[in-house]
């Protein structure tokens, strides 16, 4: 299958910090999760792929268009939906007005066609009941939906979502996951997140980024399998474990290299993620008991 996004050797420095270092990726239809600790370079990678900032080195294409040129960048943007980490709104606008504003930026100038599209994406984001309410009166979850609706204008082939579930309560998070799953049908979605549950529930593929480089690229099952035979239960925290924490049952769940005869547990995606990050500079996998 021809990938929607093909990136090779992307590198970017901010002052003395290497935010991205030789990142290569190929993204196809479906939801790909981008996991990584704070400062891993996730947002930087998303901003590069969303054409907000250019990379110092390397190149990428979206549907064959090269954003390195002005014309190519415009073509990429015509196929792009972007939900930034902290989406800003004009608080006096209603969801309809705000999405209409974004639709104009996306070159939908015909009023009737634009309004039809605004209505479609507001419905898709589950905002049909509040489209006339001022954004400043909406909850955080509803505002995130408005931002998602704006990203969906024009039915983009490539959707970039930067930590869209941060700050949402569990119910809102679940509803937002449903929206992302729907948005991922037939589209290429790159979803940056801190939540391994997001990846487990939504993604057919996961990329782990740390220190600006790709540490893992595969399926969630493959990431989980990295922890096979390396998760065990004990009555006290095992000092030899890379990470360990008390569970609701009162026992400790340990991740690392188990002692002989340990009571092995079924690994989760989070266990595989922690072990992938283990030993990397600047990454703390210690979990308090």
């Amino acid at each position: 299958m021809t990938p929607t996004v093909s990136a090779s050797g992307l590198s970017l420095r901010y002052g003395g910090t290497r935010a991205l270092d030789d990142v290569s990726l190929r993204l196809s239809a479906g939801v790909t999760g981008l996991l990584g600790p704070n400062g891993a370079g996730k947002t930087t990678l998303l901003r590069v792929l969303a054409t907000a900032v250019p990379a110092d080195r390397g190149a990428f294409t979206v549907l064959g268009h090269d954003p390195g040129t002005s014309r190519g960048r415009q073509e990429v943007r015509r196929h792009l939906g972007y939900l930034p980490q902290t989406p800003g709104f004009h608080p006096d606008f209603t969801p309809f007005e705000f999405v209409d504003y974004v639709a104009i930026l996306k070159e939908l100038t015909d009023r009737a066609a634009r309004h039809r599209e605004v209505r479609r994406v507001l419905d898709e984001a589950g905002l049909d009941g509040v489209r006339g309410k001022r954004i400043r009166k909406l909850s955080g979850g509803m505002r995130q939906r408005v931002a998602l609706a704006a990203a969906l204008v024009g039915d983009p082939a490539f959707l970039v979502l930067d930590e869209p579930t941060v700050g949402l309560d569990p119910e809102q998070r679940m509803r937002f996951r449903e929206l992302i799953a729907r948005a991922g049908e037939g589209r290429t979605v790159l979803l940056s997140t801190h939540q391994t549950e997001d990846v487990a529930m939504l993604c057919h593929r996961v990329v782990v980024l740390a220190g600006g480089t790709v540490r893992f690229d595969g399926t969630p099952a493959e990431l989980t399998a990295r922890a096979a035979g390396r998760v065990w239960s004990s009555a006290e925290r095992d000092p030899g474990a890379k990470a360990g924490w008390r569970t609701g049952l009162g026992t400790f769940r340990n991740v690392g290299d188990p002692p002989v005869g340990a009571d092995l547990l079924e690994p989760t995606l989070e266990d595989g993620y922690l072990l992938t990050l283990d030993g990397l500079d600047g990454v703390d996998t210690e979990v308090a008991a």
């Binding site: 969303a50 054409t51 907000a52 415009q74 943007r77 015509r78 792009l80 972007y82 930034p84 989406p87 800003g88 709104f89 004009h90 705000f98 504003y101 974004v102 104009i104 930026l105 996306k106 070159e107 931002a147 704006a150």
Partner: peptide, 18 residues
């Protein structure tokens, strides 16, 4: 100063035109 700047800058409308 523009709360929607990040969304606007990656839109197809050229930033200079806006």
């Amino acid at each position: 100063l523009d709360p929607t700047y990040e969304m606007a800058v990656v839109a197809p409308m050229h930033g200079f035109r806006l």
